[in-house]
Design a protein around this nucleic acid. Structure first.
Lengths: 181, 181
DNA sequence: CGCCTAGGCTAACGCCGTTAGCCGACGGAG
DNA sequence: CTCCGTCGGCTAACGGCGTTAGCCTAGGCG
């Protein structure tokens, strides 16, 4: 519907806020049109006065998530722009990326899981979010993609509990970052 | 319920076969108890005579997927056991991994997406599947995890169409493998 | 012959996303 | 002041989902 949060009508912002609380607190199964409505003290069909579909609501959540994660990544590279080695920049970027994902696991999954409805997202948002990674890779797009794949793989596998409980994930991150620096 | 395919009753095998066709052909939304039943010429409730729940049916599919992918990976390292460099082994392993995932995208997503019901999977199956990766990493578990994360990241991002259409994925794979070798 | 079990069936429950159609409140125009 | 349109609620309902309860029939076996 509308892209930047400031351009959303107040009521739409209410809907997105309610949806976000539900998603973050209870995961995707908790994100239901009826539950979102209940949180606002209204009934599910009324939501459709503000939002076209559940899918659009998810897109709005995704846009917010992209903006937040992107901001963190930009801040991270910004704070190191001058006089850090590539290795240092990557380490910091990875730290921030992982931290955000662990703080918002369901949002991270929403944003990275499954095909992305690119055309419905604010144009350029995805690229802007990814920018810091490309910069940290020294502009080499192949290396940037390898790096992103590594970071996403580490993150999603950790979120999904796929590593053994005694795995030293810090060591695995370091190993990968060292290799890809 | 029962683990190895040979230990499943014939009717259970029918159910899993029908489920697999649906999943592979139409994706997760097509995998419905009613549709599975319809494919077998029966009604959905009858499925529960053979399977406890949809979740168990998915676990059975996962077990098959693990076995198949694991077999491919074992074959790949086996064919190179003697006299290949580490780099060569990793390249071959990656090729086989990616090929299987692209051939069975929905199955790959089922197996790698979301938390894994480890306790319901045949014991040791997951470790056996991962074995070749650990071997190729020279036994270093941290490097093995970094490698797996990279491979999974590349694969799932490709399946989800997250790379630009003009991205040279072969180059990205090569770049990552070279770094992690 | 009688019984047990395997494997079908229908009906139904409570969820889901979504649509149709109704209605009251409210703000601005004549 | 009144009328009217829009905004944002509502109820009822549809079709689909996983799942349960309870029934029935056919076949094997003591």
């Amino acid at each position: 519907m509308i892209e930047a949060p400031e351009l959303r009508s107040p009521r739409v912002r209410d809907v997105v806020a309610a949806a976000r609380v539900l998603l973050e607190r209870e995961g995707p199964d908790g994100l239901t049109m009826r539950r979102v409505a209940a949180r606002m003290g209204i009934r599910a069909p009324s939501l459709y006065k503000h939002v076209d579909s559940k899918e659009e609501l998810e897109v709005l959540l995704m846009a917010d998530a992209f903006r937040e994660l992107g901001q963190q990544l930009h801040d991270a590279v910004g704070s190191l722009r001058n006089g850090g080695s590539r290795h240092k920049a990557l380490t910091e970027l990875a730290r921030v990326y992982r931290r955000w994902a662990l703080a918002h696991p369901h949002l991270y999954r929403l944003v990275t899981g499954g095909p992305l409805p690119r055309e419905r997202l604010p144009q350029g948002l995805e690229a802007w979010t990814a920018e810091p990674v490309v910069m940290a890779a020294g502009g080499d797009p192949d290396r940037a993609r390898a790096l992103w794949a590594f970071a996403h793989g580490m993150t999603i596998l950790e979120l999904d509990g796929r590593f053994p409980p005694d795995a030293d994930l810090h060591a695995a991150w370091s190993s990968g970052i060292a290799a890809l620096s």
